[in-house]
Write a protein that binds this DNA or RNA. Structure first.
Lengths: 206, 206
DNA sequence: AAAACCTTGTGATTTGATTCACAACTATTA
DNA sequence: TAATAGTTGTGAATCAAATCACAAGGTTTT
């Protein structure tokens, strides 16, 4: 179980470190200093060191961090030493694109169930996944151990769909709908709304 | 020009307020207190008031905020009283889904140019946009006033593509590639990487 | 018209994150 | 082997953000 005393903002940077370490490993590097990593990841070296020190001393003084060793540790901290099955609800344009996206599986996140309400979409196959009727959510989730959901339904259906997911055991939701979900304590939600990001950017465009 | 003395974290919350105010307006509400807004948006009322007070006193004591008036002001602060034309580079699964996504245009962001390197994709039409050869980037950007780009190319092409975009006048990039872009000062980048968010979520899943 | 109530806007305070500064240790060079 | 250089890990100091507390002013009720 994750220690509850580590600042969430620290946790949020670990995936970034992991991503960059994976790049370095692919380039054939074996050791990296916090200064080099800082350069790549755009975060001050001392902050990287302090973040890592919450979890232990992974580095060697005078040398740096063994990349494989640090990747192993970060993957363990982030619970990435397993395949995470996921359900996606809403198989429109975006949902289909996400089902086809290779990047999830590459990092151990596998969409194993796709649900939709539209009869024209139910039964179609996308990248090996046959879309099921959203009515089957309860039964499908019951006989699986899916704990993560991708929510790509229209905004007006998002809240009720999210509640149904949570009622049937979903513990984390990646929400693509442009609304703020109200869900019970203990359910983690991460929002992905490109419009909010654009509106943030335009503030700085004269 | 945007005042440079306002914390970025404050600016980042304004789009959220705007989104929620738009919902309230659509529901027929005319006035909202910071307490009500807090409830909807999930941010403490005093923080909403303090955020807004950076830009002026928009409320009425004893009453609350006139929704239309506050929306107008936020739109003006965020430079949303115009259509923002955008270019998208990379018309794969995700790029196509974004071109078809209605949410951008609905909020004043319009994809007017789509570029790709793949001959099989160049020339195809998606939601009224004919995909152009990425080689035409310079010419197309020169005769337009596009300042925002959506970057949906593969990771290994992202850095060089971003540099080309910046060289031809792009000032803000919404980066969907799973890498950290290194770009000159003055270019704003916002990253959308669902895998990083998932890896953050799994930390909290036992 | 007075009293009671409500809500904003903000200076002061508290909390939390970042950065500084450096001791401790390792590796490399002379 | 000694001296120099490099790098981590961390307590202390600084900086920034969030929250508190409340005066001021508007609204509603009696």
């Amino acid at each position: 179980m994750a220690k509850p005393n580590i600042p969430d903002i620290v946790v949020s940077r670990l995936p970034l470190y992991l991503q960059t370490l994976n790049h370095l490993l692919r380039e054939g590097e074996e050791v990296v200093s916090s200064d080099e990593l800082s350069e790549k990841v755009g975060i001050p070296a001392v902050q990287i060191r302090k973040d890592l020190s919450y979890f232990g001393g992974f580095g060697v003084k005078g040398k740096g961090y063994d990349i494989i060793h640090l990747i192993d540790n970060l993957r363990s901290i982030l619970n990435l030493n397993q395949i995470w099955p996921m359900v996606i609800v809403g198989v429109g344009n975006l949902g289909q694109a996400l089902i086809r996206y290779q990047g999830f599986a590459r990092q151990g996140f596998e969409i194993v169930l796709a649900l939709d309400i539209n009869p024209n979409i139910i039964g179609t196959e996308i990248a090996g996944i046959v879309v099921q009727d959203v009515e089957t959510m309860e039964a499908e989730l019951r006989r699986s151990d899916i704990r993560i959901a991708l929510l790509t339904v229209p905004a007006n259906a998002a809240q009720s769909t999210a509640e149904a997911l949570v009622a049937h055991g979903i513990k984390a939701i990646l929400n693509y709908a442009p609304i703020i979900l109200k869900l019970p304590e203990g359910v983690r939600v991460a929002n992905i709304d490109p419009v909010l990001k654009l509106e943030h950017l335009t503030y700085y465009l004269s």
